[in-house]
Design a binder for these strands. Structure first.
Lengths: 103, 103
DNA sequence: ATCCTATGCATAGGAATGCGAGGTATTCGA
DNA sequence: TCGAATACCTCGCATTCCTATGCATAGGAT
């Protein structure tokens, strides 16, 4: 199960400190959420393309050994959006908690 | 702003103790979330109809003074789904918090 | 050697969710 | 008397996500 709308934020968080490539970003989200969050490839790649299109990330071809990978790096604009998204998440999830009980 | 997917749960919560009608349910969600959550009518009414269709709520015409209102009452099945949804919300929002920082 | 699994990227089709805009009608206070 | 709040409804659109599918490489098991 996934929370709709949180994926872009989770992607930005995954490359906040250093660039990473799609497949690894998905693994990271799954592991860090202890298996709860599990976005599929058909969701992840379009989301990455959209973020790039919006200028929140840039990408480059990782010429590593053999298999080609596309690495994504967060931009200044992306960092700003991430900060904003974090605040937004706290606000909205807090609001749901107000109603569903348990703070 | 709203969290996609949480509306059915919030509706069920709003009629957990006593029946209520659509317009009032929307007001209640907005007030209890301190204005953060604000689902529109074009979202709310179809959601109510869907819940009824699924047997999670039943409805009846409130023959109150003048204006006709449709009241919704939660069913046994609805109560079970609500309990499940609450647990699901805690699990998934907790997972997002694990990643976005702050527990 | 061959095959399965994991890695790695991508697109297409469809379902679900929510919003805005539009429509109808009543009630109540300024 | 007239506008705002109440109260219900539907349609079209955008966004988000999933499933399925396709392609290709690498590494381990048989």
């Amino acid at each position: 199960m996934n929370l709709r709308g949180t994926l872009p934020t989770l992607i930005l968080e995954a490359i906040e400190r250093e660039p990473n490539h799609g497949y690894s970003i998905a693994q990271r989200i799954k592991k860090r959420s202890r298996g709860v969050l599990d976005f599929k490839e058909g969701t992840l790649y379009p989301a990455l393309h959209k973020l790039e299109n919006e200028g929140l990330v840039t990408s480059y071809e990782g010429a590593e050994k053999g298999r080609p990978r596309r690495y994504y790096r967060i931009t200044e604009a992306g960092l700003a959006v991430l900060a904003n998204d974090r605040a937004e998440w706290r606000k909205v999830s807090g609001a749901v908690n107000l109603i569903l009980g348990e703070a």
